[in-house]
């Protein structure tokens, strides 16, 4: 359900970078630990983009697998659930499989980053600046 909040944040961010140009695509990196449901984010992005420079833009989501590094032994591991044989395997594992320690640093997997946007002219949308530049009505 937080996908709508994230979609609104994405549109706000893109508007700041688009300088009024119409956006045709938004390329997003999504870490596995962000609990983002891709189809839900895509759906909500469609709503959030209405009446903005993002209206009609594609949202390309690149998944980033998680990687943790043990603070004690330096072992790297992916905490994602393995193909589940039992229900207990359905959970992420935040304890080092090598030495059992709980302290770790996140190497990757927490990304939620707009990597780039694709823009094409300013046909569809007008920025505030352009509005200011139009002749007085």
């Amino acid at each position: 359900m937080h996908e709508l909040s994230l979609a609104i944040a994405i549109v706000d961010l893109v508007e700041r970078h688009a300088s009024g140009r119409r956006v045709t695509a938004v390329n997003l990196k999504v870490g596995a630990m962000r609990q983002v449901v891709p189809r839900s984010l895509e759906f909500q992005f469609g709503f959030a983009a209405r009446d903005s420079v993002c209206e009609g833009a594609r949202l390309e989501q690149e998944p980033v697998a998680a990687l943790l590094r043990c603070g004690a032994c330096g072992h790297d591991w992916d905490p994602a659930p393995r193909a589940a044989e039992t229900t207990s395997d359905l959970t992420f594992s935040f304890r080092c499989p090598g030495c059992g320690t709980a302290g770790f640093e996140v190497v990757r997997g927490e990304e939620l980053e707009v990597e780039s946007i694709e823009v094409g002219g300013n046909a569809g949308a007008r920025s505030n600046q352009e509005e200011r530049c139009t002749a007085p009505r």
Binding site: A9, I10, H17, V114, E115, S116, I117, E118, A123
Partner: peptide
Amino acid sequence: MHRAKVRVAEDVLDAN
């Protein structure tokens, strides 16, 4: 129409 790719590299929640 001129098309371009703009590098952004910004966390979605940076503003927050």
